[in-house]
Design a protein around this nucleic acid. Structure first.
Lengths: 349, 349
DNA sequence: TTGAAAGCGCTAACAG
DNA sequence: CTGTTAGCGCTTTCAA
C-alpha cells in the first residue's frame, strides 16, 4: 500500500495536521520540523492522494476532452496545445470519444460529471455549428474547432475566411490574375467561409472568382486530379488555383504535371491545412494555409481555465490562419508573407 | 452545488447508509424504499462522486496513457482500441505526452501516481526497445507498440517480421521472382524485422533478397522516388518491390511512372502501414500491410485490465499483421489473402 | 428493514 | 509552533 499522510506523521513524530501543513508549505513551524516532515515523505515515497484532496478543495484539476467524431488528423496538434495550456495549472486531461453516437456522448458526460471534472472541451472534425453537448452542466464548457449552435456557449475556432484571403493574396502577389478554386463539399461551413474569403481578397484587387471557376467535390486527390483538367480545358488562361485542402492540391499538382503545365510558372497552387507530410512531398512542394491548430489548442485551454476561474467569455472567437510559403507559389520579392510566430511544437502526423 | 448522497437521504427520508445501499442495489430493503431513493436521486440529478467513492474502494477506474514522443499517425487507431477495451470496465483514460523529455515523463508519472490510477499504458512511435518508465510503480504498466527493455515488463507490439512475410508472399503469389526492398533507416527495429521476415518468406520459395536489392533511407516519398530509379538501372529485371512504408511506396509508384514502367504489370508494389489516405490515392492504389493498430489497442487494454486484476503476463507479445490488397499487387486468383476480420472501427486520419 | 458510527486520505479552523 | 477536532462524499460493518 502507498503511504498515507498518517504514515508520514507517525514516522516524523508529528500530528497529521502538522504533516499536512509541512508538506504544503502552509502555516508557520520550525524549519527543522518542516524539513523532517519533507524528508520523511521523500524517504517513504509519499505521493499525496489528489482524489482525497479534491474532496475538500472542490477542484479536481482534471478536465475532460470529448471528441465527437473520432481523432482526426487535426486532433494531435490541437491536443498538444490544450495540454500545454492546461499544464500551466497542472490539470490533467480525461479523454473521451463519442464516435458520432448521442448515447455514448451522454454516457461520457455523465462519467465526467461523476468524476467532477473542472471543465470540458468539446471538439469535432468540422467547424460547422453543432448541437451543444448538454444543458446546465455543472462545469464550464469550451467548444474547440467545432462551434456550438448556442451563442451563449463559448467556442473557439479557426477563421476560415481569413485563410481563404491569405491563400488568394499569396496567389495575386505572385502575379496570378485569373484564379480558380477547387474545394470540398459546400455543405462544410469551412468550405463556404474559404470561398467567401477568397472572393473578398480578390475584390480588393479588382479581380473576381466567378462560379464557373469554383468546383466543389470530395476532399480527395482524385478530385483535384480530375477537375484541374476540366477547369483548364474550359479556361486555359487560368494562372492560379486555390485548393480547399492539401489533398486536392496534390491531385491538382499531379494533374497539371500530366497536362504538361509547369507549377508555378504556368499555374501557381496554394493548398490548405499545411499538412507537412503531404505538402512537402508534392513536387513542387505546396504552399499551404496553416490553421495553427496548436495555437488554437492553447487558446482553448487558456479559455477553459479562465472559465473555470469564473471569467466568462461567451460567443464564438475565430483565430487567424497563417501561410507556409513553398515552391508551388513562392513569395514575391520583398514581400513578407504572414507566417505564424508560434509554430507548432507538435509536428503533425 | 451538486447534490450529495446526504441530500438524497434527507429528501427520501432515509439515512445516508440506506441511501447508499439503495443506490447501489446492495443489501436488502423494501422495494418501495429503494424505489423512492432512486427516484429522488433522479429528481435531484444526483451523480455520485467517483473520487469520493474511490477513497474507500481503492480503485479509481482511471488509467493513464503516456505517450513518449507525441501523437503520431498511429496513435488514433491505437487509442480507439484501448478506449473500447477499457470502457468494458468503465475505465477512463488520462492522457499525457512526455515529448521525449525525461523530466516531463517523470512529472507525469508522479501526477498519475498522485491520482491513483489503476494502471498505465506506455506508448511510443517506434517498436524499438525503450527504457522502462520507472521502477516499483504502484500500478501495473503495459507497453504498447513500443517495447520495454526490461523483459519482466509486459509489452504488446506488432509482429513486423510477420508483416514482412505477408508483403513478400503477396508479391510472390502475384508472380514476382526478383524482389527488392526499399525501406527506412536500419536503426529501427521495425525495419530490421521486416527485412528478416521478407527474407524468410523468400527462402521458403527458394528465392532470395541479396543486400544489393535492399536500400535503406529515410521514410519519405523522396526516398522511394529517387531509389526506385537507381535500383532499376542497376537491375532492370526486378519485378516486385516491397516498400517499408506507404510513403516510400508512393514515391516508388511515382518514380516507376516516370520511368515508364507499369505497376503492377512490370513491377508490382506492396507498401506498409495501410495508411488509407495515401494508399488509396496512389495510382494505382497501393496494396499494403496493415498493423491492425486498433486491435493492438484492444489487446493492450485487455492486458492492462488483466494486470490490474492480478493476472500477470510478463514478456513481449507480438500481434500478427494483415494485408490490404489493392491494384499495385492484386491477389492471384483463387487465393484468399489474409485480411483482418476485425477491421478498425476507427478510420485512420 | 433500517440506521448509527467509523473510516477512506486529506485539509482547515481553532485551541493549546 | 503544534495538535485536536471536524468534515469533504461515500461505503461498510454492526446494532437496533
Amino acid at each position: 500500500m502507498a503511504p498515507t499522510i498518517r504514515d508520514i506523521a507517525r514516522v516524523a513524530g508529528v500530528s497529521v495536521a502538522t504533516a499536512s501543513k509541512g508538506l504544503n508549505g502552509k502555516g508557520r513551524m520550525r524549519p527543522e520540523t518542516r524539513e523532517r516532515i519533507v524528508q520523511t515523505a521523500r524517504d517513504l515515497g509519499f505521493r499525496p492522494n489528489r482524489n482525497a484532496r479534491s474532496l475538500t478543495s472542490g477542484r479536481t484539476y482534471t478536465v475532460g476532452l470529448l471528441t465527437r467524431n473520432g481523432y482526426g488528423r487535426f486532433t494531435p496538434a490541437l491536443l498538444g496545445g490544450v495540454e500545454d495550456a492546461l499544464s500551466a495549472d497542472t490539470c490533467s486531461l480525461l479523454l473521451c470519444d463519442a464516435r458520432r453516437d448521442a448515447v455514448r456522448e451522454r454516457h461520457y458526460i455523465d462519467a465526467l460529471t461523476a468524476r467532477r471534472v473542472d471543465g470540458l472541451i468539446v471538439t469535432g472534425r468540422e467547424t460547422d455549428q453543432a448541437p451543444r453537448v448538454g444543458r446546465d452542466l455543472p462545469f464550464p464548457v469550451v467548444y474547440a474547432y467545432t462551434v456550438s449552435a448556442d451563442p451563449a456557449d463559448t467556442s473557439v475556432t479557426v477563421d476560415d475566411e481569413h485563410g481563404g484571403r491569405l491563400a488568394v493574396r499569396q496567389l495575386t502577389r505572385y502575379g496570378c490574375r485569373r484564379i480558380a478554386h477547387l474545394t470540398g463539399p459546400p455543405s462544410y461551413a469551412a468550405v463556404r467561409d474559404r470561398v467567401a474569403g477568397a472572393r473578398a481578397a480578390l475584390a480588393e484587387e479588382g479581380l473576381d472568382l466567378p462560379d464557373s471557376r469554383v468546383v466543389y467535390g470530395p476532399f480527395s486527390e482524385e478530385m483535384g486530379f480530375t477537375h484541374v483538367r476540366r477547369l483548364l480545358e474550359r479556361d486555359p488562361e487560368i494562372d492560379g488555383i486555390f485548393c480547399g485542402n492539401d489533398q486536392i492540391a496534390r491531385g491538382a499538382a499531379d494533374g497539371l504535371a500530366a497536362l504538361g503545365r509547369r507549377v508555378p510558372d504556368d499555374v501557381a497552387l496554394v493548398g490548405f491545412d499545411n499538412w507537412t507530410l503531404l505538402a512537402a512531398s508534392t513536387r513542387p512542394a505546396l504552399a499551404s494555409v496553416d490553421m495553427n491548430l496548436y495555437r488554437l489548442g492553447r487558446v482553448v485551454g487558456e479559455t477553459l481555465l479562465a472559465s473555470i476561474d469564473g471569467t466568462v467569455s461567451p460567443g464564438v472567437s475565430r483565430l487567424p490562419c497563417s501561410i507556409a510559403v513553398r515552391a508551388s507559389c513562392p513569395a514575391s520579392t520583398g514581400d513578407d508573407p504572414v507566417w505564424a510566430s508560434d509554430a507548432p511544437l507538435v509536428p503533425d502526423a
